[in-house]
Structures are given as structure tokens and as C-alpha cells.
Simulated scan of single mutants.
Amino acid sequence: MKIIEVKLPDHSYNVEIETGILNCTGQLVSSVWSERKIALVSDSNVAPLYQDQVADALTSVGFTVHNYQFPAGEASKSLSVLADLTRDMAADGFTRDDGVIALGGGVTGDLAGFLAATYMRGISLIQMPTSLLAQVDSSVGGKTAVDLDTTKNIIGSFYQPDLVIIDPETLNTLDRRDLVEGYGEIVKVAALTDGKLWDLVQEINSPADILANAEELSQLSIKYKADVVMGDEKEGGLRQVLNFGHTIGHAIEALAGGKLRHGEAVSIGMVAITRIFEEKGLTQSGVTQKLTDRLEAVGLPITSSLLDSEAVFDKIKNDKKNHAGHLNLIYLHQIGGPAIKSIPSEEIRDFLDIKTLQS
């Protein structure tokens, strides 16, 4: 078993990674929680696959489990679904001494995490991500949120779990598109770090390669993210580098109306922002092509007709990472060399030249 420690000033926890670890859920959870009532939250895709298995493992060691399910999809990451889950937990008599387990992908982790953060002002949380995107990205670091209208993650909190349990075996039940979109976040981390992870992604040329190397890809990606989070838990400085590709990516994801997955949008966003900075001479020549090669190797998109829309600038200007009239753009000096450039919001349209975005 690979264990990554996340040590924060007020709350520390382990990320435990091993193929087949889902079968050990009862022992793992009982190592951090006393006997209590557990809200086991999954969506309509994941619940039929794993919810009963995990619930049985938990009840076998003395926990009382209530299974909750919501419709799969980003549309469920909403205040209305959050309210429904809160009502269900209240009706079932959950108290501050109980806990929530998020069993599923990124939507589940964000939604159930925010549910734990807000129910009775906060109860215990464990993340059990079952998608590659959730395993390498949203399950670690404590970001929880719901969307409002077309604005992603606008209502949320930083709320750390007590444990993260990752079983790479769950990736075998993902369809190709769901698997590959998570790999977009891995390429992002590899480009930020260089080193062993960047070397490993050079060997990934198909979805089958992703599955064959999933445990090591997850371990290296999570280790980097954990180190960043430990240095900057609330995204005041260093942690902003994890938003590489997200400013443009979130904008086109919102405009796509559900037709683009998060990892696909980030893939497009990384290439777009890198091309802009490379053409301005701020990124080393050839970096855009290196990113493009690694993303296209597994079938990730690298451009979108949505970049041709004026609306993309409105989304970017209203990004929640806008601080005091400035937007911090994350870019690469070179592979392994992330940097931050602060641009006044009113200058964003000129800086992100739409002709450059279209190229």
C-alpha cells in the first residue's frame, strides 16, 4: 500500500492507494473513526457498482450506514441537490458525531464534501474517489463546492477529509472518455513538475497505457498536489499554480453546456494559455507542442470552436480567482517551471488576443 501524508496545521490525514483496497474499507475507516452513523453518498452511475460493497464492509465492523444516491452529472452539483441530501440526513437523525463518505467521481467528492462541511456546521468526511479525475485532483486538498447557474464551484469551502481511499481497480469500470479526461489533470501536474512524472507521461500513448500505469500516475500526481497544499492550504500563493489551464478551461467548460468534460476543458485551456505565452516570448519555444503531443496521444482535445466566442472573455473576467481587479494567469516558463502573471481584468481581452486563441 502506498501512503501519502497530508500534514496541515489544523488537520492531517493520509491518502492510501492500493489496487483492491475497496475490500478493506471497514478496517481503514475504523482506524480513523469510532463507530457512528455514516452517510454513504454516490451518484446513479457509481452506486450500483460499489455502494453495497462498501456499505457491507462498513457495517461488518460496526458502523450504521445510510446509502444516499443522486442523479449522475454536473447538474447535480447544485444547491437543490445539496438541500435534498441535507433533508435526508436530518430525517435519518444524523448528528455532529456522525460522518459522510463521498464514494464516486469529482461531482460526488465536491457535493458530498460540501455537504459534510455545512451539515450542522461540519461533520467528519472521508473521500473515496472512483474516477481518475477525482483520484488525482478533487479528492485531495479540501476544496468542496457546488455550482450556481453556469458558474462552477462558486459556493464552497475548504474542508479537509479524515482519510482518502484510492483503489485504481475502480478505473476499470470507467468508459474511455471518463478515463482519459482524468489524464488531462495528470499531464497538467507533470508539466508543472518535470522530473519522474513528466518522464512517465512520455510513455503513455493510449488509454490502455493509462490503466497499466494508473497506480504510479496517481501516486506521483497526488504527492505533488499534497506538497503544494501543505505549503498553501487556502490558495493564497503557491497553490495557485494548480490552476494551470483552468482559467480558460473553466470558461469554455461553462460555455459548452455539458458537452465538454472538466479534464477535456483543462486540456484545451493548457494548450491555449501556453500558446499565448509562448508567442509573447514568456514561455520557452516548443512547450506548446510538447503539451499537445502528450494530450493528443490519448485522444484529449487541444482546441475548441468556443475559443472563438466573445463570451469566453466575460467568463474569464468573472472567474472566482479574480482578486482586487486582477486575474492571476498561470503559465510555464518551461516544462517544470510554472509562473504567475497578474493582469488587470480590463486588460484581459487584449492580453488574451482572440486571434491567438483561435490559432
Rank of each mutant, 00 (worst) to 15 (best):
M1R: 08
K2Q: 12
L8H: 03
D10R: 11
H11V: 00
Y13E: 00
N14R: 15
T19R: 14
G26E: 13
L28Y: 09
S31V: 10
S34V: 12
R36T: 10
I38D: 03
V41D: 13
D43L: 10
D43P: 10
P48T: 11
D56M: 11
A57D: 12
L58V: 09
L58F: 05
S60P: 10
G62F: 07
F63I: 06
N67W: 00
Q69L: 13
L82H: 15
D88M: 06
M89D: 03
G104P: 07
G109F: 04
G109K: 06
G113D: 03
L115E: 01
A116S: 12
T130L: 01
T130I: 04
S138N: 01
A145P: 05
V146I: 15
T151W: 05
F158K: 05
T173I: 02
G184H: 13
A191S: 15
L192I: 11
T193W: 08
G195N: 14
L197F: 02
L200N: 04
I204Y: 08
A208M: 05
D209E: 02
L220I: 04
I222H: 02
I222T: 07
A226C: 08
D227Y: 00
E235L: 00
G236D: 08
Q240Y: 00
V241T: 15
L242S: 03
L255W: 04
R261F: 08
I276R: 10
E278A: 04
T283H: 02
Q284S: 09
Q284F: 01
L291G: 02
D293E: 15
E296S: 13
A297H: 11
V298G: 07
L300S: 01
L307Q: 04
G325L: 01
L327D: 08
I330H: 05
I330W: 00
Y331N: 03
H333I: 05
P338E: 10
I340V: 15
K341I: 10
K355D: 15
Q358R: 13
